[in-house]
Computed example of a mutant assay.
Amino acid sequence: MSHQRQDLDTRRIVWSGATLLAALLVVLVVCFVLWRSWAPPVLQHVHRPPEPRLQPDPTRDLATYRHAQRNADYWGWVDREHGIARIPVERAMELMAKQPPETEDVR
């Protein structure tokens, strides 16, 4: 009785794997060289994105916004010299409801 001949050629599989690994290394080296030579000039031409940009400190911005919203319902002067005051929205609506509508003289 003789033994069965092996169907796979181990030497050919090892050489194929080594060839693929060598090709991968060559491609990686070429990509690295190209990236090192092209990246600096490309990155110099990058401009800042247009407005609006991301907030540098969103926590502080939110605190400022909430503070302004809390203070919006209080009475106070916006510009005392020009007689501009701030009043709560509900009170402004009451005052506007009490005023007679202005009529235009249409003939």
Results as ranks from 00 to 15, higher is better:
residue 89 V to R: 07
residue 45 H to T: 12
residue 29 V to D: 09
residue 53 R to Q: 06
residue 8 L to V: 14
residue 82 H to C: 03
residue 25 L to C: 15
residue 34 L to G: 09
residue 11 R to T: 12
residue 99 Q to K: 04
residue 96 M to N: 10
residue 47 H to C: 14
residue 84 I to Q: 05
residue 42 V to W: 07
residue 42 V to T: 08
residue 17 G to M: 06
residue 41 P to M: 04
residue 49 P to F: 03
residue 16 S to L: 07
residue 52 P to N: 02
residue 11 R to C: 09
residue 102 E to I: 03
residue 49 P to R: 06
residue 14 V to C: 04
residue 33 V to K: 03
residue 65 Y to K: 05
residue 6 Q to I: 11
residue 82 H to D: 10
residue 4 Q to K: 15
residue 2 S to P: 10
residue 92 A to R: 11
residue 35 W to I: 07
residue 82 H to R: 11
residue 50 P to M: 04
residue 1 M to K: 15
residue 34 L to S: 07
residue 42 V to H: 06
residue 81 E to F: 01
residue 63 A to C: 08
residue 83 G to L: 00
residue 30 V to E: 01
residue 68 A to P: 00
residue 65 Y to E: 06
residue 73 D to R: 07
residue 6 Q to C: 13
residue 10 T to Q: 13
residue 77 W to Q: 11
residue 82 H to Q: 13
residue 8 L to N: 10
residue 72 A to K: 08
residue 46 V to C: 04
residue 61 D to S: 10
residue 18 A to M: 10
residue 74 Y to C: 15
residue 11 R to Q: 14
residue 29 V to T: 15
residue 79 D to K: 05
residue 47 H to K: 15
residue 55 Q to P: 01
residue 10 T to Y: 11
residue 83 G to H: 00
residue 88 P to E: 01
residue 32 F to G: 09
residue 81 E to K: 06
residue 84 I to R: 02
residue 6 Q to W: 13
residue 68 A to R: 06
residue 12 R to W: 11
residue 61 D to P: 00
residue 2 S to T: 14
residue 48 R to C: 07
residue 78 V to P: 00
residue 63 A to I: 07
residue 41 P to T: 01
residue 71 N to C: 12
residue 84 I to T: 07
residue 36 R to T: 03
residue 47 H to E: 15
residue 18 A to Q: 10
residue 85 A to Q: 09
residue 25 L to S: 14
residue 88 P to I: 01
residue 40 P to A: 01
residue 18 A to D: 09
residue 44 Q to Y: 11
residue 88 P to T: 02
residue 57 D to W: 03
residue 67 H to I: 11
residue 52 P to S: 03
residue 40 P to V: 02
residue 80 R to P: 01
residue 7 D to K: 10
residue 5 R to T: 15
residue 100 P to D: 03
residue 28 L to W: 02
residue 98 K to F: 03
residue 35 W to V: 06
residue 27 V to F: 11
residue 21 L to V: 12
residue 17 G to Y: 02
residue 78 V to F: 01
residue 105 D to G: 10
residue 42 V to L: 09
residue 24 L to S: 15
residue 12 R to F: 11
residue 83 G to D: 00
residue 56 P to V: 04
residue 4 Q to N: 13
residue 106 V to Y: 01
residue 53 R to L: 08
residue 44 Q to W: 08
residue 4 Q to S: 14
residue 49 P to K: 02
residue 79 D to P: 01
residue 70 R to H: 15
residue 11 R to F: 13
residue 84 I to C: 02
residue 104 E to I: 02
residue 25 L to Q: 12
residue 31 C to F: 07
residue 44 Q to M: 09
